[in-house]
């Protein structure tokens, strides 16, 4: 860790330049032995992985493990990365989603492994915090969607990716993405409409 800190410090003087580099350039630097490049990539890509994993799994500890594993695969693939083959973020989103699916399968195979976050409205003090309640409600509703709809909706409306990029991540056509997003949103609206007052949208608007 000492080595890591010192190289990050040498990079910090040149922080703007590092931020200007593309993900691919940074990954090349890392493959060539530059520890500070890993730091910039982690700052840039780590939160996206974590955000998607958290929306897909609805469990913080599991989302952290998936994020760590997805980033580990990035570090390992670095020397073999073929420039221009795909965007690194696209590749990483796909790896993250697949790890989430594996995680959910493992969990359903072993019901004792991993306890989901409490999403219940009886969450005590939090109950009155309407914003928290609204976001919890969204997570619970998302969790009820079929896997592919959920992926498409999260990538489109939380990560704000374009349909063509989502199509690449999910390896389906743009039309299929549009269809999944539309169906997912309809299903979400139906789940949430019964909780309109409870969610306080009238105040919110």
């Amino acid at each position: 860790m000492e080595d890591l800190t010192s190289s990050a410090q040498t990079f910090r003087g040149d922080r703007v330049a590092a931020e200007d580099l593309s993900d691919e350039q940074l990954l090349r630097l890392f493959a060539d032995g530059d520890a500070a490049a890993a730091r910039v990539l982690t700052d840039r890509l780590g939160p996206r992985c974590f955000s998607v994993a958290l929306r897909m799994l609805n469990n913080r500890a599991e989302a952290e493990d998936v994020t760590q594993e997805a980033m580990m695969r990035l570090w390992k693939v670095a020397p073999d990365w073929v420039p221009g083959q795909a965007r690194i973020s696209t590749w990483l989103y796909r790896v993250t989603l697949n790890l989430c699916i594996d995680q959910r399968r493992r969990k359903s195979a072993d019901p004792l492994d991993g306890t989901p976050e409490p999403q219940d409205d009886s969450a005590g003090v939090v109950e009155r915090m309407q914003q928290k309640a609204r976001l919890d409600a969204l997570n619970v509703a998302l969790a009820q969607l079929p896997e592919r709809q959920r992926q498409a909706v999260v990538l489109r409306h939380i990560e704000e990716l374009s349909n063509p990029e989502i199509a690449e991540i999910m390896r389906i056509s743009v039309e299929a993405v549009e269809s999944l997003v539309a169906r997912g949103k309809r299903a979400l609206a139906a789940i949430l409409s019964g909780r309109r007052e409870e969610l306080g949208y009238d105040d919110f608007r």
């Binding site: 730091r39 982690t42 760590q68 580990m72 570090w75």
Partner: peptide, 18 residues
């Protein structure tokens, strides 16, 4: 309200990278 990357997770990721 997208989540920040937790500090301890960032450390775990960078330890792997190193």
């Amino acid at each position: 309200s997208s989540p920040e990357l937790p500090d301890d997770l960032a450390v775990r990721i960078l330890t792997d990278a190193e």
